[in-house]
Write a protein that binds this DNA or RNA. Structure first.
Length: 509
RNA sequence: GGCGCUAUCGUCUAGGGGUUAGGACGUGAGAUUCUCAUUCUCAAAACCCGGGUUCGAUUCCCGGUAGCGCUACCA
């Protein structure tokens, strides 16, 4: 039997890391087994579904590196791929199920049901549908329905245990006593989730249902739907045998406080990570390692093709995992360092632009300069969004603030600090710009005349030049300051000469 | 409340009837560097509790506890 898996999100919001991991595992499994990955949009909840999310969903998936053979945007034999376009199918099979006696009309109003539920809860018993309408003779039910009474359609849950073999969790069994007859079709005529998934998965020939474990408790209801469908006389089934697919339920991703990952833990949408300058391969790699580990368990870095190669559902863990953004950042730093500098630059430019450090459409000279800036700053950031802050030493210079700074004052209080800065400023301002060579030569000279070295040499110079005693390598930073001062920027970069002048003036007072 | 799922360092995990319980992130220390960061080396750090089965359980079984999920005419 060919492997066919599906990812079936609801377009009710942005794709977040939990769903993305489910999609990734489905995709990995499909690719690993040369199967087909189907994208299906579950938009039966008209109230909450929005068309704009569907497009974004697909963009996010593509960004992560996933692709699909069948979906709303491409051809396939099992379409349509939006539940909202499959209403006829749901109604058709509901009629068949009613005719076969496996389903029945329910005339209970939501208010009645709610009341029943509250009473059951108060009595401390399992709230489930009483089955009141089960016993209405079919002929009577049909005529009441024809007469215009509103009715939903319910499945008759058989009086026997419902079980399925979960590829991740093993055998799971539910007693029929705890499962009330589920709604198939709402009184509005639309399909309820537990029914629609079965019709869709069955008709789309899905072989493996890989999804979040919040669906485990729904699965027995779905199993009952499959069984009822399988009992239908063959002409009604259109060649679909309604055999149970293999189920594989993935553990939930939790926040650091051990509760389900949600808004409270900050933004976890893929769009957010993309905007922050997290690389898709880093996110995919990290997500793959949440709940899955290769046998041996001693390897962490995997490209998408390597994941495909190594992936298997048998290695998926059943226990919930906590999303650790610190480890994600570690992984992102790794991929950032490995990446083509040109690609990183292209990703960084919009980020610099967003904060106004550079203007629109940088020319080649600006690109060249930024390339070096990024290269210098990259080892200091977790993601690209931290670049502008790091670049502050280049774009912002405030001599007065730097002198007022408490940490700096300790350094500047040393008598040698004044000697160093004055000596350095004098030599540095004598002629031309500070190239690497000149900078080193000047520093060398100051070292000799002041007999200072190490921190007591570099710290004062750093403070005068950048406003901070620590930062990236000075001999790389200095030429960048000089080169930057020749560029046309929204707020000009100050040259070393300029900085030293402002610093000394401010220090006089 | 009922039902279900889960339980190895702080976190992600490997492992499995007898192991010095392995790796990674993070943390600490040291080395390198002008500093911070990077890089490298080293270190501390775990089998939820109680019963059983067994010569022997962290591993298998049962119970407890805790966390999470479901308990809808949401998905």
């Amino acid at each position: 039997m060919p492997v066919r898996v599906r990812f079936a999100p609801s377009p009710t919001g942005e794709l977040h890391v939990g769903n993305a991991r489910t999609a990734l595992f489905n995709w990995l499994f499909a690719r690993r087994n040369r199967g087909v990955f189907v994208l299906r949009i579950e938009d039966t909840d008209v109230e909450r579904s929005e068309a704009r999310y569907e497009g974004q969903l697909m963009e996010d998936l593509k960004w992560l590196g996933l692709d699909w053979e069948e979906g709303p945007d491409c051809v396939g034999d099992c379409g349509p791929y939006r539940q909202s376009e499959r209403l006829g199918l749901y109604q058709h099979y509901a009629q068949e199920l009613i005719a076969a006696g496996s389903a029945y009309y329910c005339f209970c109003s939501p208010e009645d049901l709610n009341k029943e539920r509250l009473e059951a809860q108060a009595a401390g018993s399992q709230p489930k549908y009483s089955g009141k309408c089960r016993v209405i003779p079919p002929a009577e039910a049909i005529s009441r329905k024809k007469a215009g009474e509103t009715a939903s359609v319910r499945l008759r849950i058989p009086d026997e245990p419902l079980r399925f073999d979960d590829l991740v969790g093993g055998m799971v069994e539910f007693s029929p006593d705890v499962i009330g007859d589920p709604i198939l079709l709402r009184s509005s005529g639309t399909a309820a989730y537990n029914y629609a998934v079965v019709i869709d998965d069955g008709l789309m020939q899905i072989s493996h249902v890989i999804r979040g474990d919040d669906h485990i408790s729904n699965t027995p209801r779905q199993v009952a739907v499959y069984q009822a469908l399988a009992r239908l006389p063959s002409p009604a089934t259109d060649g679909c045998d309604w055999r149970l697919p293999q189920f594989a339920h993935l553990s939930t991703i939790l926040g650091p406080d051990h509760t389900r990952l949600s808004k409270r833990h900050g933004v976890t949408s893929l769009a957010h990570f993309r905007e922050r300058g997290v690389l898709p391969e880093a996110l995919a790699n990290y997500l793959a390692l949440l709940g899955w580990a290769p046998s041996g368990g001693d390897r962490e870095i995997f490209s998408l093709p390597e994941l495909v190669e190594a992936f298997s559902l048998e290695q998926v863990s059943r226990s919930p995992a906590i999303f650790d953004s610190v480890k994600l950042h570690w992984m992102n730093r790794h991929y950032l360092k490995q990446s083509d500098p040109e690609r990183v630059l292209d990703l960084a430019i919009p980020i610099f632009r967003a904060v106004g450090q550079i203007g629109e459409s940088p020319g080649e000279d600006l690109r060249q300069w930024l390339r070096e800036v990024v290269d210098l700053l990259l080892p200091a950031v977790d993601d690209l969004s931290q670049l502008p802050e790091q670049a502050g030493v280049i774009f912002n210079y405030d001599a007065a603030a730097s002198i007022a700074n408490e940490e700096n004052q300790q350094v500047l209080a040393e008598p040698s600090a004044r000697q160093v800065i004055e000596g350095f400023a004098k030599l540095a301002q004598q002629d031309g710009e500070l190239t690497v060579e000149r900078f080193r030569a000047v520093l060398d000279q100051v070292k000799k005349t002041t007999r200072q070295k190490g921190k007591s040499l570099f710290h004062p110079v750093r403070i005068a030049l950048t406003g901070s005693p620590s930062g990236r390598q000075l001999d790389r930073l200095v030429p960048l300051l000089e080169a930057g001062s020749r560029l046309k920027l929204p707020t000009p970069v100050k040259s070393c000469r300029q900085r030293l002048m402002e610093f000394q003036q401010a220090w006089q007072r």
